[in-house]
Each structure stands twice: as C-alpha cells, then as structure tokens.
Design a protein around this nucleic acid. Structure first.
Length: 228
DNA sequence: ATCTGATCATGA
DNA sequence: TCATGATCAGAT
C-alpha cells in the first residue's frame, strides 16, 4: 500500500502543501493511521477531531491547536469535510468562534470569518457512518478562495448576524439565520457560559457560539470544482 | 474559560 | 430524512 511519508516540517510553499494533500487521495484512514502509528477509534463519538488531526500530521501543519491558520506561513486554513457517496457534505463546517463582545467598529473586511476563509485547503473524506472508520477513503483536495459571489453571500450573512449581536439580540439568533453562514452553539455543553450584551445593553451570560458554513454553500463549492 | 479539531443525537 | 442545538477531547 505504500502510504505517503509523514513530513517532519511545515510545507515550504503552497505547491508542496498541495502535493502532499494530493498524495493522500485514495488511501484509507486505516492505512494512514497505521503508518503514523495512531490508534483508530471504533467511531468518532468521543474523537470528533480525529480525522482532522490525522491529516494535519500528514500535511505538516504547524499551528497545532493554537488560534492561528493551520499554515500561517502560507496563509492557508485546512478543513477536512465529511462527504457522502455522491460527494455531498454530511456536516456543516465550523469556521471560528463568534465574538459576542467588543465588536464596535468591526467590519467584514477585518473579520475573523473573512480571514479564515481567504484560502482554504478542503480535503473531502468519506464520512458515512455505515463505513467503518478505518475503511473510509481520503478524496482529492481543493485549494479554494471565495469568488466574488461567495464573498458577497458571506458578507451579507456576517453583517446580518453581527448586527444582531451588536444590538444585543444574540439569544434571538438561530441556525436558520443566514443563507450560507450560520451561528450555532460551540461549547463543551449547554451549561458553558460566556459574556455577551443583552437587549438593553447590559452584560449577560450566554452560550458560546460559532460561525458555521451551511451545507448548501460547501456543497456548491465542491461541486463547482469536481463536476465542472 | 476559550481556543483547536469537529460529529452526535434528537425533534420536526 | 435532515438540520438544529448539544456535545466530546485536548491544548493553551
């Protein structure tokens, strides 16, 4: 099976990163885990980040779990995305934490969402639960930068959602707001609390939230690449 | 507590 | 069946 070698360094340039990613296509998670000497969990219930961490190893990601892009030197963010047999996303994609305080003066241009999504290396991975984890295959990577239309969609949603946060309406936001970008809880559990601003400008405690890309958006972006 | 990596599990 | 709201583990 001759799986790719594990790199010991961060990629020198984007081409090398892309080469590394392409070399993984077609291998199973079992093959990659074996060569990396990583134990394979029976499922992802208690190891939700396992696939992402495994691929980071094979690409030489440097940031670890620091609040940075995965390849800060290259300006690239890595996202594994679980897909079904037709290539469609099985899950939404977490982007970053939604800032609930200190938002006076923040704009789309300076937002974390825009910066995170400026360049993303998408790696599709088979994600159907009927396929044993070790048999799931890695797909072909896609290096993506939002086009004008995607940027506008993201900007519109971001502005709508941030307006609600700034106006103290965090707790009125549901995952139904936004066409392509949504805000949902991002926490250890429903008892975790963080500071925000209430409807009358008072400080309140609320569930930490995150920005997520809806499946319609990631499905379209993958389709544009793979069936054009 | 908050960031990283995300998927789970239940109600509609 | 599927998206929303809830949750899991590890690093910092």
């Amino acid at each position: 099976m001759t799986t790719p070698q594990l790199p010991t360094t961060t990629p020198e340039n984007v081409q090398q990163l892309l080469n590394r990613a392409q070399s993984l296509a077609g291998y199973t998670l079992g093959e990659l885990a074996a060569r990396a000497n990583i134990a394979i969990p029976r499922d992802l219930k208690r190891d939700k980040g396992w696939v992402g961490m495994l691929l980071e190893l094979y690409l030489g990601a440097s940031a670890g779990s620091k609040p940075e892009q995965d390849f800060p030197e290259r300006g690239v963010e890595l996202k594994t995305i679980p897909i079904d047999s037709r290539g469609k996303p099985l899950e939404t994609t977490f982007v970053c934490v939604a800032p609930l305080t200190g938002n006076s003066g923040v704009t789309w241009e300076s937002s974390h969402v825009r910066h995170k999504l400026q360049r993303v290396l998408w790696i599709p991975v088979e994600g159907e639960r009927q396929i044993p984890l070790e048999q799931r295959r890695v797909g072909s990577p896609l290096l993506w930068t939002p086009n004008e239309e995607e940027n506008e969609q993201l900007k519109r949603d971001w502005e709508e959602l941030m307006d609600m946060i700034v106006l103290g309406k965090v707790e009125r936001i549901t995952a139904r707001h936004g066409e392509v970008l949504q805000i949902r809880p991002k926490a250890a559990n429903s008892r975790a609390l963080t500071e925000a601003t209430g409807e009358h400008g008072e400080p309140i405690l609320t569930l930490p939230r995150g920005f997520y890309l809806k499946k319609n958006f990631t499905a379209a972006l993958l389709a544009r690449h793979f069936l054009l």
